[in-house]
C-alpha cells in the first residue's frame, strides 16, 4: 500500500495525471473521522494484474470546505462520493447524498464519532 499526501486543490489534477483507465481501477472514496473536527479523505486505486499494488491519495480537511468531485474523470466514483456526502455530511461539488439515509434516520452517522455520538 502506497500512501501519497495531497491537498484538496491539487487532488483532481494529481489523479488526472496518475489515472490511466486501462492500467488502474478506482476502488472507492473513503472518509475517516479524525476526532478533532477534521476528516481524512482517501482515494484508493488498485492496479490491474499486479500483485498487491494499491495507491491511496489522501488529504486531511475540515467538514466545511467543499471537496472537488472526480466524477468527470472516473464516472464510477459517484457511488463513493454520494456515500461520503451521506455519511459525513460533507459537500462535494455537484453531488447529492441520499444514498442510504432516509428522512427519519441519523443525519451524519459516521461524523464526530470520537467526540461521542453524532448529529441527530
Amino acid at each position: 500500500m502506497k500512501k501519497i499526501e495531497t491537498t484538496l486543490e491539487r487532488v483532481v489534477k494529481t489523479i488526472e495525471e496518475f489515472y490511466d483507465r486501462y492500467e488502474w481501477h478506482f476502488l472507492t472514496l473513503n472518509g475517516i473521522d479524525l476526532d478533532d473536527g477534521k476528516i481524512e479523505l482517501q482515494w484508493i486505486f488498485a492496479k490491474y494484474g499486479a500483485k498487491d499494488e494499491t495507491v491511496v491519495f489522501y488529504c486531511i480537511t475540515d467538514y466545511e470546505t467543499e471537496v472537488p468531485s472526480i466524477v468527470k474523470l472516473i464516472p464510477s466514483a459517484i457511488m463513493g462520493e454520494r456515500e461520503v456526502v451521506d455519511m459525513f455530511g460533507l459537500t462535494i461539488e455537484g453531488i447529492e447524498g441520499k444514498l442510504y439515509l432516509s428522512d427519519d434516520s441519523l443525519k451524519t452517522p459516521l461524523k464526530t464519532m470520537g467526540l461521542g455520538g453524532c448529529e441527530v
Partner: peptide, 27 residues
C-alpha cells in the same frame, strides 16, 4: 475491499466495507 484502522484500543477507529455491487451500480 476492507479498510480497517485501529489505534490499539478495544474499539476500532474505522471499518470501511466496499462491496462489489456497490462499485458495479454505475456500469
Amino acid at each position: 475491499m476492507y479498510l480497517v484502522r485501529g489505534s490499539g484500543k478495544n474499539f476500532l477507529d474505522r471499518v470501511r466495507i466496499k462491496t462489489p455491487t456497490f462499485s458495479g451500480i454505475p456500469a
